[in-house]
Nucleic acid binder design. Structure first.
Lengths: 330, 330
DNA sequence: TTGTACGCGTTATCAA
DNA sequence: TTGATAACGCGTACAA
């Protein structure tokens, strides 16, 4: 592949002039610049990225470490990140941690090694990973979940949204409200559970212990829902902590011949295009995932740009979308 | 950040020895190797990726250029790619082309500039992009859509799957079968349309011109479905070319008070977790997206490994999953 | 305004 | 087995 000296030779100038011309420095004779441009074009010259990165001691690459691209919540985040990054001339390397601390750590190592300009991380839990990055002065922004040691963070008010959702269920007349949340120890799972409990209390409802922890997936939720609903005194409503899980819950309802809304109130985190297609339509807590991604990327780019201000935490608002699955009369 | 010479100084050896020790060359005294490892550990040393890439004239990075990560079909592909790449020690940079040739071209430029080891591309259409890569000897694998100039490709038999889906509708007693497909000129859209026409013919049904082209999104499909169904002689069944579009179609059915299956048979490309939650459950043509990704990555890695064999095209099979939305009696 | 020459951090070659 | 040294391709300080 053609190098800068090939271009220089062809244009009859020095490599320095080529570099200057191609990088748009003003201090270059227009005629020479034209010759250089022509030569570069003819040779199909592309600056060698690694060489340039080495020389400049910086890259235009962001690492985005999330649990799973197949989760619509995270794909929306990643789309927000990508759009902002791309507009600023940055590339994004995407990493699936599968919520596995070891995998997360591994990707952080790669990010460090490749000298990425910054990292967007949805932390699996209590990490020493954060310290790792800080020690190497690589800017980092936490998404969706806080970073143990602090730092720039973009969150959603999961807890209060869960509380509101619980209150909404209570207002609709449900009295035995249960909750399916994620693995205990995972911040979002815990926040939603706490919000749920606050909601029960605020509504004056007793906590009947109708709670199950499971991984954030349909299969686990299916089992958990089955357990809860097979009890002697089953819940008459469920707050479900994410989109994948509610699929399992609704399947289980179907198997048991129960109808969402009428028999069991259902509300879940994360809206989806298909939520309105269900019968009854699914009530949800809609999270601004795309905005989280784009805001996080903006924060990160500011740091990369040299901002040394205090760490900021931005908390975005989820909002409740009431549909038929939380109406008894449905 | 610590460099290799820092480590060398601390361990009291030369940089060459450090390099050898850290890269596990056998020709290094165990005791020295231990000293090096200790020094590297104490300094928190990470080899400088760009420097190494420059020196080795190769990177362990794959570029994946798809139209949109928010499309579940492509996220499944990207997950397949990522898993295989990661297992082989490669990173993946993810790019959303939005089916815009200009954006695709831009990303190809970046990929070339960063000297990625290879590219996985879902081509927007008739490209000169392929030629670009070939000219620079960067291995490329086309996913889901063929590359104009040929080359390694992983496809799905969209066309025959569409034909089967059409035959299935005909067998179920539908006689005025329409088709909503993607933009004309896009290979998958055209293949599905052609398959649909073959299906009509094989079933002995007249082609009534019940075809609409739209972008692969819900909004376009909504308008198109409305147009078709508002006709004097509307279709009694629809073959829909993807998952996002069928959301628009089903919404439109709902607005018009029509029931899938009973009033209008519906079958769409791409299965989804929520397809069975609908009433009636949605019949689909299920595509092996994850496998496409992982197979594509394997093909690419083989090329990167130096395989100079003939270009291969692998065509995977989609399969029909009949559910309630293609049953008149539902 | 242009050119020469150095160094970014590694790995690979060659002698020792 | 080890060390000195030369690249890899680029950007930039300095000299012209």
């Amino acid at each position: 592949m053609a190098t800068i000296s090939d271009v220089a030779a062809r244009a009859g100038v020095s490599t320095a002039t080529v570099s200057r011309a191609l990088n748009g420095k003003s201090t270059v004779d227009p005629e020479l610049a034209a010759r250089v441009a022509a030569a570069a074009d003819e040779l199909g010259y592309r600056p060698n990225g690694p060489a340039r990165n080495l020389r400049k001691q910086e890259t235009a690459v962001l690492a985005l470490i999330i649990s799973d691209v197949e989760n619509p919540f995270f794909t929306a985040i990643s789309r927000g990140v990508e759009d902002v990054a791309h507009a600023a001339g940055f590339s994004v390397v995407l990493c699936n941690s599968d919520d596995d601390p070891a995998k997360e750590r591994e990707y952080l190592d790669v990010a460090l090694q490749e000298r990425v300009a910054g990292v967007l991380l949805s932390p699996t839990g209590r990490e020493e990973g954060a310290a790792l990055l800080r020690a190497h002065a690589t800017p980092i922004v936490a998404l969706d979940r806080p970073l143990p040691g602090g730092g720039d963070t973009v969150l959603v008010n999961s807890g209060s949204a869960a509380k509101n959702a619980t209150l909404h269920l209570a207002e609709q007349g449900y009295v035995r409200i249960g909750c399916l949340t994620g693995p205990s120890g995972m911040p979002t799972a815990d926040a939603r559970l706490n919000g749920y409990r606050e909601g029960l209390e605020a509504a004056g409802l007793a906590d009947l212990g109708l709670v199950r922890h499971t991984e954030f997936r349909a299969a686990g939720a299916r089992r958990a829902a089955r357990q809860l609903l097979d009890q002697d005194e089953p819940p008459d409503a469920l707050l479900v902590a994410n989109n994948a899980m509610v699929v399992g819950v609704l399947e289980t309802l179907g198997e048991l011949g129960l109808r969402a809304g009428r028999d069991v109130g259902v509300i879940a985190f994360d809206d989806a295009p298909w939520a309105t297609l269900l019968d009854p339509p699914l009530s949800v807590v809609s999270q601004p995932a795309y905005d989280m991604g784009s805001l996080g990327a903006q924060l990160l780019l500011r740091r990369i740009g040299g901002d040394r201000g205090e760490p900021t935490t931005r908390t975005l608002s989820a909002h409740l979308v009431a549909r038929g699955s939380t109406e008894r009369s449905t």
